[in-house]
Nucleic acid binder design. Structure first.
Lengths: 190, 190
DNA sequence: CCATCTATGTCAGTTACTGTCATCAATGTA
DNA sequence: TACATTGATGACAGTAACTGACATAGATGG
């Protein structure tokens, strides 16, 4: 056995989620998180750039899968369909529903966390647009498809969390796309 | 003459903009801003909730004008056109171009400020959607028109700052709408 | 002339985060 | 076996963003 318990990163992330749930984000200090995880406060900030970042560890993995899927998509696919397909793929691999529900409640209760979430979405959108451009999709199509894709992700994620109309990820994404088609048919589907 | 110089709020805002420009947002302390404005640090935090908020004082006025314009729009106008009309109206009343250019450069250089800006846009979008709903526009049309409107604002603002194709606000908004029409003709214009 | 109001100053306190150096198990190497 | 190196962590001091509580003094109204 090592000098310390393994997986300090994971213990910190779990401790933070618990404490943010129990007493709220602002009412939780970094010291408290560290103590519950059995490390010092300094170690917390070695793993996470700040208190908010703990809740967004999944975003890198999410982005990685989306970008890879877009890069590997067949050439004859429409850009928006490449993006939607990558969104469908992401669900099963990344999300635990119980965890996501708790996390969403924490974020909904705190503007500082909403800010961070918006920045992550903005970053994701820029990365998707760039991936599309690398596949030869010109602007503004690339940017618009990316923005639309992120909008679908947001709304689809919300409905998956809410469980309406379904708690199945792919179904939520497809239903969201269908809704959007009703409003902008010629922009989404040929 | 009063006990203190008048317009502490304005002096603080100017001092902050200067210092953020000169040495960057993170390299500027609240104490330095206060000293340049001739007040104490405590007074700075009486006027502004935090260091970032100084740069977003215009957003409330911006939102007010947009919402009022939407509320007063003719009944036969399409929702998206109500929003676009409100965006056109806002420019001359709110923005000073020199100030806006400096401000944009400061924000572009700092992720924490980008987060705040995204939150302001998100808030604006929600408020526009609500204003449309109050005029009888159902969802998801209201939400989509609001989101589209904010997108137009963002891109139009960027082109106005850049001066391409014009440094005239209304022209920038109209050009952005035209660009968007090219991509989603049936969603924007009948 | 007095009471109150309002904007500000003063000051102590909490906490998020950072830089730096020490420690010590694990690991590789002679 | 002995010894140097590495990597994760602890220890600790420091900065700066905020916050709360109370003091002060000019302006204002009766």
């Amino acid at each position: 056995m090592g000098r310390w318990l393994p997986d300090a990163h994971g213990r910190l992330a779990s401790a933070a989620l618990e404490l943010y749930s129990e007493r709220g984000f602002e009412q939780t200090t970094a010291l408290e998180i560290a103590e519950r995880a059995g490390v010092t406060e300094r170690t917390f900030f070695r793993y996470f750039a700040d208190k908010r970042e703990v809740l967004f560890q999944g975003s890198q993995e999410l982005q990685r899968i989306i970008l890879e899927t877009i890069a590997d998509a067949p050439d004859d696919m429409r850009p928006i369909d490449m993006v939607v397909a990558s969104l469908e793929k992401v669900g099963a691999q990344v999300f635990d529903r119980t965890h996501s529900i708790r996390r969403a409640a924490i974020i909904a209760a705190n503007p500082a966390l909403q800010e961070r979430e918006l920045l992550k979405f903005s970053t994701l959108s820029a990365a998707i647009a760039e991936a599309l451009r690398e596949r030869g999709v010109p602007d503004p199509s690339a940017t618009l498809a990316a923005e639309t894709g992120v909008t679908i992700f947001k709304i689809g994620f919300e409905s998956w969390i809410a469980g309406t109309p379904s708690d199945d990820w792919v179904e939520c994404i497809r239903e969201t796309v269908a809704q959007l088609r009703l409003v902008t048919p010629s922009a989404i589907s040929g």
